[in-house]
Amino acid sequence: MQLAEVELDRITGDIFAAILGLTLDGHRASDTFPPDERVVTGVVQITGDFEGAVSVQLGEHLALRAAQLMFALEADELTDEEVTDTVGELANMTGGNIKSALAGSSALSLPSVTAGRDYRVSLPGTVIKDRIGLDCDGDLVVVALMQRDVTL
């Protein structure tokens, strides 16, 4: 499966610009969140000719800001469900666009979302094919593409 044409930064940037009106300003030196920062992660799995997953991670500050923009609400009006829904939809759009860029026929799962501090996202049996950290007005966005390890 050819992954060279999948541009995580362009795909993610297009989604943030079109849906949220936010600009992602290139790669950050670090793609790791501070251990004390609460991070919201959306994951979608891809099955078929390509087997893997896509994760999108936002710190809580940016997750709240994204939900505010999605729902046109103030931060104190948002529910946890709306923040979860927002990050899940960002992962769904990112995964869907990546899936569309891959050759072959694959299916996309519904998104799952988790939140917490100082954790790592790993899917057993997969390896990270690409992982980028992008800057959004000082907040970090981490996007990763994982692929099933066929050598296992």
């Binding site: 999605m70 469900e81 829904d85 939809e89 519904l110």
Partner: peptide, 13 residues
């Protein structure tokens, strides 16, 4: 749409 966020985006558009 199963996403409330996306329903909001579509309605706003």
């Amino acid at each position: 749409d199963d996403s409330k966020a996306m329903r909001a985006i579509v309605k706003r558009a």
